[in-house]
């Protein structure tokens, strides 16, 4: 049975705040579903942009089969740091699971999947919202 170390947040991420107990419940349920052993979660520091705990877990990969953050959006927002974290896990022959999203990165080829989700999520902050689109539709700019 694979041993996966949980990783949760004690602060909001991308506007979402989830109680730590709920994060742990989701991780526990995910591990149960995939038949993995859930190792007690490490909780990231509350300071903005801190990933010191994640870095520590990456240093300690030898003792586990992989990491299981509550969500992939708890990885570093900085692209270079995020890709480096994922690459370190894969290079060590380990796995990075995401409990909320329900999937895992087990090879280098799967890293772009996570990266695409992150970049689209970040780009959505610059996209029109429903009210913008409704106003546009009312404007009949391209009637025809």
């Amino acid at each position: 049975m694979k041993k996966l170390r949980g990783y949760i947040f004690s602060r909001a991420f991308l506007g979402e705040r989830v109680p730590q107990a709920v994060q742990n419940l989701v991780i526990r349920d995910y591990c149960q579903r995939i038949g993995a052993q859930f190792l007690l979660s490490a909780s990231e520091y509350a300071m903005d942009d801190s990933h010191l705990i994640l870095e520590h877990l990456l240093d300690e990969l030898d003792s586990v089969d992989g990491l299981v953050p509550y969500s992939l959006f708890q990885l570093p927002a900085d692209r270079e740091s995020r890709l480096r974290a994922l690459t370190r896990v894969i290079a060590a022959g380990k796995e990075m699971h995401f409990a909320l999203e329900g999937f895992a990165v087990r090879s280098e080829a799967q890293i772009p999947r996570v990266d695409d989700m992150w970049r689209v999520k970040q780009a959505l902050a610059d996209c029109p919202v429903s009210t913008d689109l409704a106003a546009y539709a009312g404007g009949t700019v391209f009637a025809g």
Partner: peptide, 17 residues
């Protein structure tokens, strides 16, 4: 469409580009 507004079913936990 990937860049249109999302409801409670979010990118990542429910949708993927």
């Amino acid at each position: 469409s990937v860049f249109t507004p999302y409801g409670d079913k979010k990118l990542g936990e429910f949708f993927e580009p």
